[in-house]
């Protein structure tokens, strides 16, 4: 008898335990990727000359590969004001991830590098500790050339650092490389 009672108690408690935790059991619990960054837009402005560098990968990791687009070539010996924008376009309206990065500015930093001689990017914004963030930049071109521009966003880099992504540590949240030309 005792055994049967025990079995019953155990069975009931198992049911209770599993049904208690049923609160969060739902049949349709396929979350949308909330942290996803689908889009990187880097906009370079010099007066009326606006050049946009975009990377878009709407289905995130896996699925189709992302696509790069560059709206035009840069002019030689020119200074552009640069602004970066990160979006999650799977949300409607698109979520602006740049805001999150700005909120946690001390934990993030953008790094820009190009293999074209004379192209340099200076970060013009700072976080609460006076270290650069890199959402707002100035891009200066020199002589003509063809090459790439790489933009990297590091999470938890060493701040301050020597300005290169390789030595800043942290983990990479964004790494995109655009083919650009200076004419």
């Amino acid at each position: 008898m005792k055994t049967i009672k025990l079995l019953a108690i155990l069975f009931i408690s198992a049911l209770t335990l599993s049904s208690c935790s049923d609160d969060d059991h739902d049949d349709d619990d396929h979350d949308h990727e909330e942290e996803l960054i689908t889009t990187v837009n880097y906009t370079l402005t010099n007066g009326n000359d606006v050049i946009t560098l975009s990377f878009v990968d709407l289905d995130g990791e896996g699925g189709s590969d992302g696509t790069y687009s560059v709206s035009g070539s840069l002019s030689a010996n020119t200074t552009y004001t640069g602004a970066i924008e990160l979006l999650n376009e799977t949300e409607d309206p698109a979520e602006d991830i740049t805001v999150e990065v700005k909120d946690e500015a001390d934990e993030h930093e953008f790094f820009y590098s190009s293999n074209i001689t004379g192209v340099s990017v200076a970060k013009t914004d700072t976080d609460g500790d006076g270290n650069p963030i890199g959402i707002e930049t100035t891009l200066t071109t020199g002589d003509t050339g063809i090459g790439t521009l790489t933009i990297i966003l590091k999470h938890e880099p060493t701040k301050p650092n020597d300005g290169t992504a390789d030595n800043a540590g942290g983990s990479t949240d964004v790494e995109v490389t655009f083919a650009i030309s200076v004419q």
Partner: peptide
């Protein structure tokens, strides 16, 4: 198996 909702990612292992 229940991939509990609310993680903000698509589950590595499904229900």
């Amino acid at each position: 198996n229940d991939a509990v909702a609310g993680t903000g990612t698509s589950p590595l292992i499904p229900d």
